[in-house]
Write a protein that binds this DNA or RNA. Structure first.
Lengths: 228, 228
DNA sequence: AAACATACTGTCAGTTTTTGTCAGTAGGAT
DNA sequence: ATCCTACTGACAAAAACTGACAGTATGTTT
């Protein structure tokens, strides 16, 4: 196995552990010596991987993922940058920052003659920033990823407060509003909640009993319109 | 110099040439033997670089860029994917395809447990697809990048056909319409053209006499509203 | 058709890089 | 205090890389 491949495998291996892993364990899994692991980790850190190592504890990779070398056409980079800008503008705070960081990372490695793509050749608008509620959409996105139930306090369109337990499975980013989509335990049906009208969101530690993708499909089938 | 560094330099070197380069020339520039160049190019191709080689001609890299290994957080990937989907929906045909390809490339190297980000956790809407005109926005984007003049035939808002020579420097992607922004030689001022009302676009081989970024800045200063 | 330029492959010896072993230091956890 | 672990340096063995050469194939030019 080539060194490059091993470095990649090492990252993957670290990703699979939520708690610190010892170099000895990594060495055993990859069939190399401990010394090599130390050298490999140093190499990866130099390449920008967020790996923390502490004596007596082990190594841990901060949540994320390392992309291997990838070839993109000019148009593909332009598309990513344009999309990133849109997210930076329309997403919630967390996602907006993430989009900016992603673009910055890409920009940092782009050769000078391609940087002009990032400059003025594409720009966005669509007017006003969205009105966000107080709640953290990041929490909702996380709950969706891990398929956990949410308890939400919501101001409905008649300005009445309601509290519901829902199974969230999607967020829709519309032109002027973001919408949380989920199965409502109270109504036993799909419901949509404008995120700017959410008063509070609490993630339960409990998984909901169905697969997110299945819920999504069922919901999609119920919609007459195509939201894809 | 390390091998990795040389491979990167090789890509950069190929990028700088629009016409095929012989392995002999590359070997000379990088101070290695021709045999090594052949081996390096094979390595790069295995890593996904779009390098074409033809006997009697030389090597050429298809326009684009190779990103080195990059670390992204989950949220950053989510932002890129969401943005890509938006572009896939709202961009013109070429850009839309580019966005889809970019996401496919990223998806291909994502480990399974992160693929769920690509599934249903984010979705887009914003309703209808845009009405596109007949012209290729890709041509306009290219003209912007190389700062070439454009001759456009435009149906103005009173449905009158006009022909203008403009210095294009930006495309705005609004909610419901895309707008080409440029300096109009006829009016000697900045003008906006809805892309769905462009009847034809011809790129002149002539560069316009000012820098795109400067034009952009001046135009931006003239706008009261913030379109960034 | 012939001559040329170039990509591309195989082999092998010399060189460089990577790896394993060993010996040792230092920082947390228990 | 002790254990576990990260981390470093040195050096020899193993592996990979490189250059040189010899040769084949394919496209371009004459």
């Amino acid at each position: 196995m080539s060194r490059t491949q091993r470095l990649f495998d090492l990252i993957q291996l670290l990703r699979q552990h939520r708690y610190p892993v010892s170099a000895a364990h990594l060495a055993d899994t990859l069939n190399v010596s401990i010394r090599t692991i130390y050298r490999d980790i140093q190499t990866l850190q130099q390449q920008g991987a967020d790996i923390d190592g502490e004596p007596g504890v082990g190594y841990i990779l901060r949540p994320g993922f390392m992309l291997p070398p990838l070839m993109f056409s000019e148009e593909e980079i332009e598309a990513l940058v344009l999309g990133g800008r849109w997210v930076a503008r329309r997403g919630d705070e967390r996602l907006s920052v993430a989009a900016k960081n992603a673009i910055t990372k890409i920009a940092a490695v782009l050769p000078d003659d391609l940087k002009n793509i990032l400059e003025a050749s594409t720009l966005l608008a669509g007017g006003e920033n969205l009105a966000f509620g107080e709640v953290e959409l990041a929490n909702i996105r996380h709950a969706i990823r891990v398929e956990h139930k949410l308890v939400i306090k919501y101001l409905d369109l008649k300005d009445c407060e309601t509290v519901r337990t829902i199974w969230p499975f999607a967020i829709g980013y519309f032109n002027d509003v973001n919408v949380l989509v989920g199965w409502c335990e109270l109504r036993e049906d799909f419901r949509h909640f404008r995120t700017d009208r959410l008063l509070s969101v609490t993630s339960l530690e409990e998984k909901y009993p169905r697969r997110r993708t299945v819920l999504f499909k069922e919901w999609q089938d119920k919609q007459k319109i195509d939201l894809r």
